[in-house]
Each structure stands twice: as C-alpha cells, then as structure tokens.
Amino acid sequence: MTEEKVKPFKVEEPLRIARLDPTFKGEIMEEPNAELIKYCFQCGTCTGSCIATRFENNFNPRRIIKAALLGLKELVLSSDVLWICTLCYQCSERCPQGVKISEFMEVLRHLAVKYGYIHPSLRLQAEAILRSGRVYEDEDTANVMREDVSLPPALSVDMDEVSKILNRTGISNILLREEGDR
C-alpha cells in the first residue's frame, strides 16, 4: 500500500514581505470565534499536545497559526494540513493563553471553503446530507443487516423539511465554489 503524501507545509525563509497579505489577519478576525488568536505567543504547547503531529509532522498547529497571522494566505488556505486536525481539542484545553486552537482550525477551514478549497471527502458528505439528510444513504443494505440483529428498519428522514431549511442556509451554493473563487 502506498502512503498518501501530505504536501509539505513550509514557510519559506527569508520571508518576502511582498508575499504576505496584510489584510488576511483582519479577514480572519472577522470570522466568529477567531479573535482569541491574537493572544497566541507561539509557545508551541498546541503542537506539543497534538497527537496528529506525532504521525504527520507537516501538521504543526503553531506553524499554521504563525503562517496565518503573517498573512501567508494562499499557503494556509490551499494546504492539505488544514484537513488533518482531528478536532480532539487537546490544544484548546492546554493553551496557556486560552486560545481555542481547534476552533481556530475550524475558522481556517471555513475560510478555505470560502475560497473554494473544499476537501473532496467533506464535499461528498455534505452532498449526501443535501440529498438524504444523513451521511449514509444505502438504507436497503443497512436494513438487511439491521434485520439480522433484530433491529427495526432505519428511520426515514423528513427530507421535505430538511431541504427547506438547508435551502435557506445556502450550503448548496457553498459547494459550487471552486478554487480561487471569492
């Protein structure tokens, strides 16, 4: 089996000021729950606490925060590593500055989505929910298995209602976005 390679997440040094987007920090701060990030003093407790980092050193929360605050917008938003966080909250719990880092990773994901960088697996999941109101759709197979263990058939989702509310949130438009869109 070949290992999927994660694209390296590297801040090129020396930093070229011209490559930094000074507006990115402001854009981040506009997102809900993002403002706490200004208290980050780069101690690295997050990375030290991170389980995923042990197995994939391209995923390094401290480095991602640094790159984001420097304004390396393209690097951060297009990067594979944004989708590696398991959202285990170990970093958020341990941050000495009270920064909610897992939540900040979600903020960066939302910004990535805004610019059309949607991880394919999450796109598939969201499409399933738009179609059927839940992640798994093969009710017939599941019901055969469920009968084996004497479980009643899986409940049906009221898609009429679910479609009505999801039409209002505009999630289908979000899914239409492509890389580089605004």
Binding site: S156, D158, I174
Partner: peptide, 14 residues
C-alpha cells in the same frame, strides 16, 4: 421520527 444528521458532518463546510 423524521430526524436528520446531527450536523457534525457539515460543520467544517458551513
């Protein structure tokens, strides 16, 4: 009856 996904699956997107 009629319940839907808890919402976790779409949280990264919206």
């Amino acid at each position: 009856e009629g319940s839907n996904c808890c919402g976790f699956a779409v949280r990264p997107i919206d």
